[in-house]
């Protein structure tokens, strides 16, 4: 139980996906314009990461059984794309408002490197099934956390009159992301 807690804290703070490992930057910059859609995206990514971890772990066992581990990337992408499709259908039916607000970023989770990254990390670190799922959810929580922080800063920052014109929009967001990333370096070395 203790080790699972360590995994979650490690994924949220120490190895935070967007801010420490620089994975999933596209939605991190794209969907952080306001808190509502950031929340939706965070939930969606957390869900996809957890479920993808749960789905890819047994598949990796099958691949290992047949000694065709080299198919990892291809098969994982296939499974992740399938899961995102399923979640998209589910959302369209049950949460239409969230579906509209996420827009193009929901299908983009398919090619989100953080999702593939978490699945491959599970295998590389030799996690068991439970640890893998916790690692997936933890990674999603970390992504959600970073996204919410970014969205909170951006709602107060972007297109403000006091910013010099060349900095408005994407440039100031990139500068902000860099500074946030620097501050997250303070966590490095806390856990493995």
């Amino acid at each position: 139980m203790g080790s699972l807690l360590v995994i979650i804290i490690s994924m949220v703070l120490v190895n935070n996906y967007p801010l420490a490992q620089f994975l999933g930057i596209c939605p991190f910059l794209g969907v952080s314009k306001d808190l509502d859609s950031a929340k939706g995206m965070g939930i969606a990514v957390t869900l996809v990461m957890g479920l993808a971890s749960a789905a890819t772990w047994p598949i990796m066992q099958i691949l290992n059984h047949f000694e065709i581990g080299y198919l990892q990337t291809v098969v994982f992408i296939l499974v992740i794309a399938f899961m995102v499709q399923l979640i998209e259908m589910f959302m369209k039916k049950n949460m239409p408002a969230l579906y509209v607000s996420l827009g193009v970023y929901l299908p983009l989770i398919t090619t989100n490197c953080a999702v593939l990254g978490v699945c491959i990390t599970n295998i590389d670190k030799g996690y068991g099934f439970l640890s893998s799922v916790v690692n997936g959810f933890g990674g999603g929580l970390g992504f959600w956390f970073g996204l919410m922080l970014m969205a909170g800063v951006r709602t107060k920052l972007v297109d403000q009159e006091y910013l010099p014109a060349p900095f408005r929009g994407v440039p100031i967001v990139l500068v902000t992301a860099a500074i946030m990333s620097l501050s997250f370096m303070g966590f490095s070395g806390m856990f493995a």
């Binding site: 598949i59 065709i68 198919l71």
Partner: peptide, 27 residues
């Protein structure tokens, strides 16, 4: 044969589930 069969099988299962889901979650 094994990698091909395995990839195709995973793809086929995914397609079947999606086809069923598109009926269940039809908007």
């Amino acid at each position: 044969a094994i990698p091909i069969i395995l990839t195709v099988a995973i793809g086929f299962v995914a397609a079947a589930v999606l086809a069923y889901a598109s009926k269940v979650f039809a908007v």
